[in-house]
Nucleic acid binder design. Structure first.
Lengths: 179, 179
DNA sequence: ATGGATCTGTTCATATATCAACACAATGAT
DNA sequence: ATCATTGTGTTGATATATGAACAGATCCAT
């Protein structure tokens, strides 16, 4: 991909995140975004339909990156496999805290995140032993998925009180217990 | 000036400063700068002759900005007039510390800075009273100029042990005493 | 010294970003 | 209601940045 495209899109996404942490998404104008990103207003339309599309693509980008990390980290123990995730959350703190906090966010981010996790969890259920015999996939996935999202949400909103490694270890233990 | 030019040049200058704080100027390659600035190698030649020209313009930019601050701040007491200067040094800490530290820097930055200050000091000498009767302009300017540069150099190299306001007050008092 | 590898400075065709201008919609104050 | 203001999305001409390729220079190990 052309360097200019990357730079422009990065700047735009960063700008939206920053602005959303300052005011409601509705009151953010295209010109605001352009100014913050130091980009011509028209340039935005070369990449996105409108500000909703921009927000959408921004979210999608992160969901996708999380998804790809999953494939990469399979074949690992939970406690280890989770480390890159929590590091990712930490690295993109402003994004996650904004998206999880912002009320006016269209297309609830939390919901999309949950779906993504549930999708990733499929195939992790231990059907070898019979301890999960009485538990439906639906129930299992919903249980672990919401649990996972919930801890992340708490961790982010509370300013990441523990380091990513620690979180990975503890949440990893709990997930391992559930599946 | 076109936004793209500004962004590119900013990125390039930032890249040079960073790289110079890591290795000797001689061993910095054009490709290094391009990579660090996330810019095509050829783009550099659209703005500068070579890396020496880039470094030169970088220094010139700061010298000029300092010069313009002088005109703006005249008609003020020294202690107040110096505040924006020290704030400027603080804001561009990496630049000044690198330029003052780097041995391999061609066209000694310290010398250019001194000339600039001496130029700015002209006209500040108190000829109204007769306490400076026996002192030549040359001597006065060289004295105060090197003193000023010296304190700045010390302040920067020692990690700015006092806040800019404090430095402005103290150095302001000393300069006022001299002129 | 010789050859391979890296760096330099330049060129070209092409892609992207810019600015200014436009018509139109939405908003808000009088 | 109306008018001025602000925001939106689009267009066209132009400026700048890009990547690839080139020839020559410099460096370095053999």
């Amino acid at each position: 991909m052309d360097r200019r495209i990357m730079k422009t899109q990065e700047a735009l996404k960063k700008a939206v995140i920053e602005l959303m942490s300052e005011k409601n998404f509705d009151e953010i104008t295209i010109q605001d975004i352009a100014d913050r990103a130091n980009v011509n207003r028209g340039t935005i339309y070369l990449h996105y339909q409108d500000k909703y599309d921009l927000l959408d693509k921004l979210i999608e980008t992160h969901i996708n990156e999380l998804g790809e990390m999953g494939e990469w980290a399979c074949e690992l123990e939970w406690a280890e496999a989770l480390v890159p995730y929590f590091e990712y959350f930490e690295r993109n703190y402003l994004f996650f805290s904004t998206m999880l906090a912002s009320k006016g966010t269209p297309s609830s981010f939390r919901t999309r995140l949950l779906s993504s996790f549930i999708e990733g969890f499929k195939g992790e259920i231990d059907r070898a032993s019979d301890r999960n015999q009485a538990i439906n996939d639906d129930v299992m996935l919903q249980f672990t998925g919401t649990a996972y999202v919930g801890v992340i949400e708490w961790w982010i909103k509370n300013g990441m009180p523990y380091p990513p490694q620690e979180m990975a270890k503890q949440v990893g233990a709990l997930l391992g217990r559930s599946f």
